[in-house]
Design a protein around this nucleic acid. Structure first.
Lengths: 391, 391
DNA sequence: AGCGTTAACTCAACTTTCTTGAGTGTTCAA
DNA sequence: TTGAACACTCAAGAAAGTTGAGTTAACGCT
């Protein structure tokens, strides 16, 4: 049995500089705007080193000066902030019937988003579509390809041939070869591939309710139900990239064991309502039903909350997160309703009196959540020090 | 809401060297014995840099030369290996009724182990006992305190005031203040605190069946049942150090939901057998019962295997590990029996045809597993590069 | 209003560590 | 026998960080 040692970077001056640059960017990003001495204290570097690095970053266009701020005694502090147009990231979400794309700037603001229906879900069709959308987005937004820092791709898992293969969310033609490599070659960009839940989680950490959190979980309502896990600031991918397949575990609803995904997911609510003779085709339908207090929908929400309570117990006790976020392709109002109705398990390590965050909170919702999350993967990478990088 | 940025080290020449030293040690440890060019390739450093670092490490007594080996063309390669007496680690496991201690050398070989009964479980009693045992171990083994690299402490969780507080495994007096700090001050050593399952997992990774694995899970049979998670080579602790409390989740046994820990743990088997009028006080009793094919024990094993199958489904789907290891304070034969009887869930991301490791395997068992694991925490730290350290 | 204290920042010299390229010695294979 | 392959060392050079002295600006006490 051969195990290979994960290549880990030895430090040399050049890599140290790159590492420190990202450390500085990360420190500035965390507080929005900062002065040099402040950054030096946060990073354990000398002010001189930080000065040199900042001068580099200014030249490279990643930072802007934000004027002086006098805080107490001493010289007024020149403030620096991330320059929004210092770089861009392309986010892609691949679905069997459509491709969603988004172009976001360095601080995470989307410049444009797009949905492209797919004729078929063949690998080449998808690659061509994404390429065309990238081209289109760049020309429409007047962004040069050189300032694109990479592309994040969200694809339905699980990856490879597993016991869950055969699920309906699958795409043909991707089981062989590394999807990241295919996209990287086709697009000529660095590519990061993740599942929808992890991407949404990273987006939430970059710009949403999980800002500054290093350990949290994200329950993503997609076609099924996915779990995004952030441990120590990094998305947990598992050994083969399939971590977070929470939809297939068994939970107890009304005393009976059911598959979690069959109780809480977009397919689940559609199927449930269909059995009651109610047809919904999109999220707006759901919202209308909700505001008309449709009793079938309310019943579904109740059983979903029950299932979620079981899932919450498992997530909390296994990962001890700072919080669990609920989000994804489900209307805000429904998410809020579910959150209000979900019983917070008493027998949980998360049931502590000194909490600073709610145990369950709502994240970004809507159809583009995962797509913007895909772009966030690129930004996250740009702000993460590289020496001894986690992965 | 204030979130503090985790202090992360900026790279400077000194830290770079320390980082690279640990990288070199880690590379050598991984293959047992290695030459300089080989290490250079593995680390991305120049051979010159590796030469310099190795010369340092030789002087500091961490490495020994292992003679030349000619492998194909070129100069015969001077081989280097970790010097066992280059450093030592002290492992401590704290239980309400006893303290277990072990002194191990740099390659993980235990020099001596000891069990000290506790008069009471007061904090000071424990600190004094550990201190006395450390002193005793050092003098008996003729190891100088200077070559002690630190102490690993295993304590029963959960830490802090949580929804699981009130469980019987608890120690009084530790809820206030950082246990690691208390031990560090009392012992005058670097201290690493972990739960039993994570410690056992790290031991397995250093010297056991998980050698070279970076993503795996460890189910630890202790008083209760704990889950150790290794993600990307690091133990997952969760936001508040309480990750892995798997014992309190609900699983299905014979169609009925039960708390996992009540179906599989040392307390569980004792209670089960007691209900049948069979008394067991230690692991040898269990082994005898097993070899006399006691039908009550066999029945318990069967329901434990059922519970474990549910747990396995959850662990695999949430975490996608390379393997799941079963170990702890339970006899080998019983663990093997359980493993043989545990149904491997079909609907699992781990159910893949291209596996290199079994889905479920037995790890180190016995009463000292966690104690040696505690010592392994120190060794792990010594072989882990420090810049941008995960935690 | 004056002046010492505090703090941020720059400049220049110095230090550490890594890399590069030339050179040496050993082994294998044509 | 000779040349290619490989491991390693030596010496020079480059990159990046640190240190300490000096400058500037604001605060706050007298």
């Amino acid at each position: 049995m051969v195990t290979t040692l994960k290549p880990q970077l030895g430090a040399n001056p050049e890599r140290a500089r790159s590492h420190n640059k990202q450390l500085v960017l990360r420190a500035i990003r965390h507080v929005g705007t900062a002065g040099r001495a402040e950054i030096a204290r946060a990073s354990g570097l000398s002010t001189q080193a930080v000065s040199n690095i900042i001068s580099d970053l200014l030249n490279e266009g990643f930072l802007v000066e934000q004027g002086f701020r006098s805080a107490g005694r001493g010289l007024p502090v020149q403030q620096y902030a991330i320059k929004p147009d210092g770089g861009y990231a392309f986010g892609v979400e691949v679905r069997p019937t459509a491709v969603f794309t988004a172009l976001v700037d360095l601080v995470g603001t989307p410049l444009l988003t797009h949905r492209t229906p797919l004729e078929d879900a063949q690998k080449d069709t998808i690659l061509d579509t994404v390429w065309a959308q990238l081209d289109d987005a760049l020309s429409k937004s007047q962004v040069s390809k050189g300032s694109l820092m990479g592309a994040g791709i969200v694809m339905p898992g699980p990856f490879g041939d597993t016991g869950l293969t055969g699920a309906d969310s699958e795409l043909p033609g991707w089981s062989t070869g590394d999807p990241a490599e295919s996209f990287a070659n086709r697009l000529g960009l660095s590519v990061f591939v993740e599942n929808d839940a992890n991407a949404a989680a990273m987006a939430e950490r970059m710009n949403g309710v999980a800002r500054g959190l290093d350990d949290f979980a994200y329950l993503y309502f997609g076609q099924g139900l996915g779990l995004g896990l952030v441990q120590n600031g990094q998305a947990v991918q598992g050994a083969f990239g399939n971590a977070g397949e929470i939809g297939h575990i068994t939970v107890i609803v009304e005393g009976r064991p059911v598959e979690l995904e069959s109780a809480t997911s977009r397919l689940s609510v559609q199927a449930y309502l269909a059995r009651q003779g109610v047809t919904v085709t999109n999220m707006d339908d759901l919202t209308s039903l909700y505001f008309s207090a449709n009793r079938h929908l309310l019943a579904w929400l109740d059983q979903a909350a029950q299932a979620l309570s079981s899932a919450l117990s498992i997530i909390e006790n296994l990962f001890d997160p700072q919080t669990v976020i609920l989000g994804g392709a489900m209307p805000d109002d429904l998410l809020d309703h579910i959150i209000a109705r979900t019983a917070l398990p008493e027998r949980s390590v998360s049931n502590r009196p000194d909490r600073t965050h709610p145990r369950l909170m709502r994240g970004t919702s809507g159809r583009m959540t995962a797509t913007l999350g895909a772009a966030a993967l690129v930004l996250h990478q740009a702000f993460t020090p590289t020496i001894a990088e986690a992965r």
